[in-house]
Design a protein around this nucleic acid. Structure first.
Length: 662
DNA sequence: CTAGGGTTAG
């Protein structure tokens, strides 16, 4: 779990050493000068003076950041005060120094101070800061008299380290022994519910804690209620989150931001924007801050709402929030995801200071636009400038390689991750590598990567393989991947649909039927396709089934005309993509009603000639839509941009920027 | 002595 970064051998503070002697209770204040005058013998006075001096010298050194010198002054018999110990501990967290932290801890043990509730709390906090959870735990286990502070400290430590289940068992233990919980306890316990892996069982736990909070009369406490809201949001439970939000008597900018974040991150970007407008124009009691704006910008990005995004950008400039790094990164992503790569680049160029996230953002922006080599060269430029790459830098650059089909470059980068940068690949990185190889039709190699993984291949990894099988119509590997996926995430309808699509492509109709039955008997429904288009700052949403748009007949007629024209040029509608058992004509009709085609039709009717048509889609762009959009771009001389679930397609004069490498 | 919402990837 915890890996030591320096090669030095460091003596751990507790095990295997067994200190048991509690030599002293806490020394009160150091003797004052007047007190010293009363000593009869000079030696006693001298030692008292020395103790006083030693305490103040060590404290001063700690405050000045000179921890090393302070440590040199420690001697076995020095009689330090609680305050001095505290400063030593705080210095260690500040310097993030393991050897020093251990030395200080050992020193406390030797003097029996590690069992003092106040200092033990500080030690737990120190190990939390150093991300060294076992030692925090050992400190906690050794404390004979625990206060609410020590309990809260270990709860916080476990939660921050991602040990949700363990944190909740601490919470349970507190309740069992009758330790009264305070507002901090509840906040940490709530957060513990979302940091663990077994999400489903812990939602119930979160609701239990919700009940406890109400019983303790904390329903008006804005910190706790905001945490509660956020916990429901992180579980994707928008209904419960909004219930908490609307029931809150006092709200502040944080609770509003948390609710906007909840909508933005749970596929409700329109609600996020509406709530923001309400906050600003109707309530106007709380000024949005940078955190609010990050969430609002994300909502625009999710919608692909460029015009809305521009308005929000202006607002950010007016409020002087544009130089805050998270805001800038969110803005870059928004522009890139709306197809305005050049604006993302411009924002990056104009930044006074950049962090690794700014670089990662730029890399993935080029990646989703299909400029793989450019993304790789930005990555190298980042290294040249001495910016240390993070795990996400590699996800970004590997993703860029995958979009552009740069298999060997991607493989080399993957290997360099461990060899040159000391970052061990996570499941996500493996998923990227499998994607890179799979898309390049190196499925055997991809399967070998999965086989040799040092960890359990998660659904992301098998999903990458299955996705590649779709592109290359490989039934054999598709069956292997989907068998795993059905075990790992049995209720994800997308996997069944993907396999059925592959069978359909291979004209294996019996298998198509079998997979469809598998889907139906479990009562699963595939996520229906939806496309959005923004026209004059208004967002119009399309699905294949709704007939709400007043122009729907006009749109259908237009599409039928294109289809006829295309057929004359040799186009065959890809009706095998329609998995229902219908007549060919009916299949064609369904294909022509795909939400993305409707949105293109609507865009053609409602925008002017030189304008780019920008569409956002919630799933991957279907092949038939891809073919037809290419045709339309040439036939009408219009630029069309479609952002699907994982990249951007720019259609111009019959060609797509993805090079038909979706 | 401790506390709530946040940037990038999939």
């Amino acid at each position: 779990m915890w890996v030591l970064h320096s090669p030095q051998i460091i003596q751990p503070p507790i095990s295997p050493l067994q200190f048991n002697h509690r030599t002293a209770s806490i020394t009160a204040k150091p003797p004052s000068t007047t007190f010293i005058c009363c000593f009869s013998t000079t030696s006693a006075a001298k030692s008292a003076v020395e103790t006083t001096n030693k305490n103040s010298v060590i404290q001063l050194l700690c405050k000045k950041g000179n921890l090393k010198q302070a440590l040199q002054l420690l001697s076995p018999e020095s009689n330090l005060t609680q305050q001095t110990y505290e400063l030593l501990i705080l210095s260690c967290s500040l310097h993030k120094s393991f050897p020093d932290a251990f030395a200080v801890h050992r020193y406390l043990i030797a003097n029996g101070f590690d069992e003092d509730p106040f200092l033990a709390t500080k030690l737990i906090d120190m190990y939390t800061e150093l991300e060294c959870i076992e030692y925090a735990r050992q400190v906690f286990d050794k404390i004979p008299r625990r206060t609410i502070y020590t309990w809260n400290a270990i709860l916080r430590a476990l939660t921050l380290a991602g040990y949700g289940v363990e944190a909740l068992s601490i919470y349970r233990e507190m309740n069992r022994i009758g330790m009264p919980c305070d507002r901090f306890t509840h906040t940490y316990a709530l957060k513990a519910c979302v940091v663990s892996e077994s999400m489903t069982s812990l939602l119930k736990k979160g609701k239990e804690i919700h009940g406890q909070i109400l019983r303790h009369g904390y329903e008006t406490h804005v910190h706790i209620m905001t945490t509660l809201l956020d916990v429901y949001a992180k579980f994707g439970n928008v209904v419960h989150a909004s219930y908490v939000f609307y029931a809150m008597a006092d709200k502040n900018v944080v609770s509003w931001s948390a609710m906007i974040a909840c909508y933005a991150k749970n596929e409700r970007p329109l609600e996020a924007l509406n709530l923001f407008h309400e906050m600003v124009y109707e309530i106007s009691e709380f000024a949005p801050n940078s955190v609010t704006m990050v969430n609002v910008v994300q909502a625009c990005a999710a919608l692909g709402a460029l015009e809305q995004g521009r308005v929000i950008h202006c607002y950010i400039l007016r409020r002087n929030l544009n130089s805050i790094l998270p805001v800038t990164s969110a803005l870059m992503t928004m522009y890139a995801r709306c197809g305005k790569l050049e604006i993302a680049q411009k924002i990056f160029d104009q930044m006074d200071n950049r962090d690794v996230v700014s670089w990662n953002t730029l890399i993935s922006s080029y990646g989703i636009h299909g400029f793989g080599m450019k993304a790789v060269s930005i990555f190298k430029e980042m290294l040249n400038r001495g910016v240390k790459p993070t795990a996400i830098s590699f996800v970004s650059v590997l993703g860029a390689c995958s979009h552009a089909g740069l298999a060997d470059v991607g493989k080399r980068l993957f290997n360099s991750m461990v060899e040159q940068h000391g970052i061990s690949p996570s499941v996500e990185h493996y998923a990227c590598l499998v994607d890179i190889l799979g898309r390049a039709n190196r499925l055997k190699e991809a399967a070998k990567v999965i086989q040799d993984m040092k960890m359990k291949p998660g659904p992301q990894v098998w999903g990458s393989l299955l996705g590649s099988c779709k592109i290359h119509c490989n039934v054999e590997f598709a069956e292997r991947a989907s068998a795993q996926l059905f075990k790992l995430e049995p209720t994800n309808a997308g996997n069944y649909v993907l396999l059925a699509d592959i069978y359909a492509e291979a004209r294996m109709w019996d298998e198509v039927k079998r997979v469809k039955q598998l889907l139906d008997t479990q009562g699963l429904e595939k996520v229906s396709g939806r496309s959005w288009i923004e026209v004059r700052r208004k967002i119009y949403s399309f699905t294949s089934v709704d007939e709400l748009n007043p122009q729907i007949e006009l749109i259908r007629a237009l599409l039928a005309e294109f289809s006829g024209e295309m057929k004359q040029q040799g186009y065959i509608p890809q009706t095998q993509l329609v998995l229902y058992d219908l007549e060919e004509k009916e299949k064609e009709r369904i294909l022509l009603g795909h939400s993305e085609k409707l949105a293109v039709g609507f865009g053609l009717i409602n925008t002017s000639k030189g304008e780019t048509i920008r569409i956002t889609k919630n799933l991957r762009l279907c092949q038939d839509c891809h073919t037809m959009t290419k045709f339309i771009s040439r036939f009408t001389g219009r630029e069309i941009m479609v952002r699907d679930i994982n990249r951007i397609h720019h259609f111009h004069d019959g060609v797509c920027s993805c090079g038909d490498y979706p």
